[in-house]
């Protein structure tokens, strides 16, 4: 809600409004604090190159976290996210190998127009999403179990896909330049005034997801289903249809994320996307999405992803060992959520 009255200066800066502001925006403040702190200790962190790099990496993660976030808001969860990303990555990569590349997975594959491989990758995600949605909405299997199943299936499927005799399960490399441009190239007037394509794509997806959550029936229904499933049924919300849709949307986004991941890294293996689902859930939760359902915003998810990636990058820049990085990340996840949950647990 917009506040239509404009408060006086004294009101605007009193202690209570500051406290309210910081409790509402705790997560954004954490992000800013992290950036300032890391930048203060190691100024190279704040270089344009490094910041753009963080955003590039965040782009793929954001798309996954959005897909997952919508599902979390319905009080569901999606463990298959990471492996679906991996499956889409190997599929798209196998279809865009350079014609002259020596160990192609499909040696006689003709040169395909770019949209076809991309579509194939996204379709793989779509199929996983349909299965998830069907199993959750119609067979009433708890989302944790349903997506645990598809997670394992997706991993098996991507390994089967890659492992072709006589070639064996090798990484898929030698991707076409027009494809990797999606992940590494930029769009703009000239070299100085250009934005990396992958960041643009992530931004568009973010915008669309924001519109979906805030401006469509689907979005409203997602919040309602997560907020009180029984009341949603009584209110005449088509729970099955909406649940399937949100899982399918998730699947499509994982597929797209897989495509972009392959484009950014210039290849794919059957290990791609491992653990991404947990990172996505953690980022969404850090961003204020409630695993009890009904609560969460696209902006929050974006903030959560940025915190996560700033941390990842920052710890490396600060020279923290890989093992300590994990410990620190774990602590940040729990404390960020403990902080955020204060908003909702005041009374009772």
């Amino acid at each position: 809600m917009k506040n239509t009255e404009s408060p006086g200066l004294s009101e605007r800066f009193n202690a209570r409004s500051i406290r309210e502001f910081s409790s509402k925006n705790a997560i954004v403040l954490v992000l800013i604090g992290l950036v300032v702190f890391i930048g203060f200790v190691q100024s190279s962190f704040l270089s344009l190159d490094n910041l753009v790099n963080i955003l590039r990496i965040s782009s793929v993660r954001l798309i996954i976290a959005l897909g997952c976030g919508g599902i979390l808001i319905t009080a569901g969860t999606d463990l298959s996210a990471g492996r679906t990303v991996g499956l889409a990555a190997v599929i798209v990569a196998s279809l865009v190998q350079r014609p002259d590349y020596a160990s192609k997975i499909f040696p006689s594959l003709p040169y395909l127009p770019l949209f076809l491989p991309i579509l194939a990758g996204v379709a793989a995600g779509l199929i996983v999403g349909i299965i998830n949605g069907f199993v959750v909405a119609f067979l009433k299997v708890p989302p944790f179990i349903a997506t645990l199943g598809t997670m394992v299936i997706a991993q098996g499927a991507s390994s089967l896909y890659v492992d072709r005799p006589p070639r064996g399960a090798q990484p898929i490399g030698g991707l076409r330049g027009d494809f990797t441009d999606l992940g590494t190239g930029s769009l703009g007037f000239n070299d100085t005034w250009a934005i990396p394509t992958i960041i643009l794509i992530a931004f568009v997806i973010f915008f669309l997801y924001w519109v979906m959550l805030n401006k469509t029936r689907l979005g409203k229904n997602i919040y309602a289903i997560g907020g009180n499933l029984n009341a949603a049924v009584v209110s005449g919300v088509n729970v099955k249809k909406n649940l399937i849709t949100v899982y399918v949307l998730g699947g499509i986004l994982y597929g797209l994320a897989g495509v972009l991941l392959a484009a950014r890294s210039g290849g794919a293996t059957n290990n791609y996307g491992q653990m991404y689902e947990l990172d996505a859930i953690a980022a969404a939760v850090i961003g204020g999405v409630s695993t009890n359902g009904g609560i969460g915003t696209a902006g929050g998810i974006l903030t959560g992803v940025l915190i996560f990636e700033v941390l990842n990058n920052g710890l490396v820049v600060l020279g923290v060992s890989a093992y300590w990085q994990m410990v620190v990340k774990g602590i940040i996840i729990v404390s960020a959520v403990a902080l955020d949950i204060r908003k909702y647990t005041k009374k009772r």
Binding site: M1, Y223, A224, G227, N228, N230, A231, A232, V233, V234, S290, G294, I295, Y344
Partner: peptide, 11 residues
């Protein structure tokens, strides 16, 4: 249990 969506706005 079947009426309100507690964490959603009045609107």
């Amino acid at each position: 249990t079947t009426g309100i969506f507690p964490v959603l706005s009045v609107l």
